[in-house]
Each structure stands twice: as C-alpha cells, then as structure tokens.
Amino acid sequence: MHKRDFLRLSALGTSLALGASLIGTRIAMAANAEGWPAQSFAASSVDQVLQDLFQMRTLTESDRVHVLVAKEVDDALSVPVSVSVNHPMTDDDYIARIYVLVDHNPTPLASIFHCSPANGKAACYQRVKVLHDSPLRVIAQSNRGDIFAAKPEWVHVVKGKGAAE
C-alpha cells in the first residue's frame, strides 16, 4: 500500500472516530511485551518523567540520535516524528528503547519504542500531538544502560487544527 493510501485512510478514520463506537475483540498482546508504564505516562512534567525513567541521571546530548520533525506545524494533533540512532544492533550491544517527549504537553511522555537486534537498525516513525509550542526531546537507551539524548527540537504550532489556546 502506498503512503498516500495510508494517509487517505487516516483522514477517513479521524472523521469516523467522532461518532462511531469501536468494534474490537480482546486478544492477548504478544507474550514478551512488557507492561505499560502507567507511572511514567501519568507524569505531568518533564522532570517527573526523567526522574521516573532515569532517576535524573545527567543526560548528555549526543549527535548519534537523529530526529526529523517540522519546526512549524499546522496540525497540532498529528506531527510526524522520525528517529534514527547511529548505534550497533548486535545481540550484546543494542538500542533497547527510544523515548519521545513533548515538554509542554499535559502528558509529556508521548511514546516508548522498545526495539531489539532483530530490527537491524534503531529507528522508528510515528505521529504525536504537540498541543503548544514546545521542545520535543528524543532519548535513546542501550541494553547496557547508556543514554543518548538528542538536542531538543523546538516545534512551533501555528494556531489551527488542534492547537491549544
């Protein structure tokens, strides 16, 4: 399926989401998925998130984490974020998690991507909400505990769709 088709479906889904009920069947998640980190997602400030995830260890900026995000967005509810980390993905040394945070969102932690050597490359793409002008941070953590933080990217939200006042 082409990307254009995905985007068309996405727009369709958004319009449907308002009035329709979800039909879903309960299925078990994959057996080796870790539990959803409720505490980290409940934090309402970046400091709380960093305390919970990294116990406020010093996060040194690293140029091995590459983040692609628009500096100015007009759809606050769907901001594409592409991340790649220049790091080996071998069985004994690999990036295990990639965190995406938006400082000024009511829930700063947007996502945690758990990857493995099977990925072959530490990278992911997703779309997040950026409800106010805000720095967007990406932090990668290796299986050995090493932490690599990208330089925060400032995202400016043009007052339009989904933007908070």
Binding site: A31, A33, Y125
Partner: peptide, 23 residues
C-alpha cells in the same frame, strides 16, 4: 514472535501510523 513494540500515551495521534525497521 515479537521483535519490537511501542508503549503509547494519549499524546500519540489518532489513527497511529507507525513505521519500524526489520532485518
């Protein structure tokens, strides 16, 4: 066999569109 997964918050967009690599 799961090879990667996302934990998402309510700050992820509606209609999540995700891309991941695989060897």
């Amino acid at each position: 066999k799961t090879f990667c997964h996302f934990d998402l918050s309510s700050m992820s967009s509606a209609n999540p569109y995700l891309a991941v690599p695989l060897r």
